[in-house]
Structures are given as structure tokens and as C-alpha cells.
Amino acid sequence: MTITVTTWYLEQTAPGDLVPAVAPPVGRRVDIARAEVASPEFSRFLYTSVGGDIAWTDRLGWTYGRWEEFLGRPGVETWVAYERGTPAGFIELDAQPEGVVEISYFGLLPAFRGRRTGGHLLSYGTARAWDLAGRWPGRAKTRRVWVHTCSQDGPHALDNYRRRGFRVFATEVAEEPEAPAPGPWPGA
């Protein structure tokens, strides 16, 4: 069986395009930190925990070595939101040539959705995309940040990107095989 999937490609072309979200309410401590040690185990945990119920499947077959290779590339960064010490979500940045940074993955674990954490994490992570060159000597200054989302992602994803100042620059509609959501681990 196939389903129709719409994919939107969005971008910002200047740091001033970013419209920061309101921080989570006072009393809810949300900290965001960069995972500076490349850890395939932790990155796979984040990927499967966030994407398990929304059919993220493209990296499920990655070997440990493939995760190591990707995470070890200069300009790849993973920023993690923690609520009271518990991982709540992540944003993954992938520096590309000529000052382009892709937000390759972004999302929250299901228990943390709808709590104002997503907008805050997206704002923070997008700001880190804009200042990424300062952490990676020899990288070109960021001139464009882009991301894609699709109708299979969370129901608020596209609106969240737009509220943060991203603009749609392309849209694709395709028939794709319907994939059952695998959950955060096999058999879930």
C-alpha cells in the first residue's frame, strides 16, 4: 500500500530571519547542550526515540561504523534538550559546502511534545547553525540554513519552522510505501 507524502523544503538566508520562540514556562527547567563526544549509541537512541512513532526509518540500517563516520565529520553537531536532566529532544546540524548548514534532524521524544520545548530547541539550534563556523576553524561563515519536513512528521512541524522564520522554497508530492512506525526499538 502507498500513501501520498508532501515534503516541504524551507530555508533562512540571513541570521535576522530567525524569530526566536518564547522559552518554556518558568519552573520548567530546559537546558540545551551540545553532545561534543561523537557517540553512535546516543545518537541512535535520540533518532529512534524521537522518530519511532513518526516512521523515521532511513537510518535504522546504519552500522555502528556508519554512525561513527557521519558523527565524526567536521561541522556535524548534535544539540540535545534536557528537561530536569532527561533527554527531551535533539537538533542535528550538518555543515555543507559554501556556508550552507542543513538541519538534518529535529524533534522531541513523544512525552515532551506540546510543552513549548520544540520551538525553544528549534530557535536555539537554528542560532547554532548560524554561528557554526565559529566552532569549526576553516569553515565558511553560514549564509543559509535549510531543513525539510514532510506530512509524515509531527502535525506541528511545518508551522513551527514557519514561526521560527523559515520560508518554503520547494514542495514535492510523491507516492511512498506505507511503513509501519517501528517504535524506538525493534518489537516496540
Rank of each mutant, 00 (worst) to 15 (best):
L71H: 15
T63L: 14
G75A: 12
A174V: 07
Y9R: 04
V173T: 14
Y47L: 04
G107F: 01
F45C: 09
Y64F: 13
T171S: 13
V173P: 15
E176I: 12
E175K: 08
C150L: 11
A188Y: 07
I32R: 01
A140I: 06
G16E: 08
F70A: 12
T117C: 06
P186W: 12
W130I: 04
G134V: 10
A129S: 10
G114H: 15
A95Q: 06
E83D: 15
G154A: 11
P180R: 12
T126H: 04
P74S: 11
S151Y: 09
Y9N: 06
E92T: 04
F106Q: 07
P97I: 12
E92C: 05
L158D: 07
Y124S: 04
G52W: 02
D131C: 09
Q12S: 11
G118A: 08
R59P: 10
L158R: 06
A35N: 13
D31I: 00
V145G: 05
P155Y: 07
K141W: 12
V101G: 02
A88L: 07
R116V: 01
A33P: 15
G65D: 13
L71S: 11
P25R: 00
A181M: 00
T63W: 13
W8A: 04
L121I: 00
Q152K: 09
H120L: 02
A35K: 11
V100F: 13
E98S: 14
P20N: 03
R139T: 13
L132N: 05
E92L: 08
R144E: 03
Y161V: 14
T6S: 06
G72Y: 03
R28V: 00
S151M: 10
S39K: 11
N160D: 10
P97A: 09
V19C: 05
P184D: 03
A81Y: 00
A129M: 12
Y47G: 03
A111M: 03
R34E: 11
P184C: 07
P40V: 08
L108M: 06
W56L: 03
D159C: 12
V19P: 01
D159K: 09
A157R: 02
S123P: 13
R34W: 05
G138N: 08
A127L: 08
W67G: 00
G107A: 09
G165T: 09
E175P: 06
V101L: 04
R164C: 10
H148L: 14
V37L: 14
F166D: 01
T86R: 03
V101K: 01
A38H: 07
P15K: 10
R162H: 14
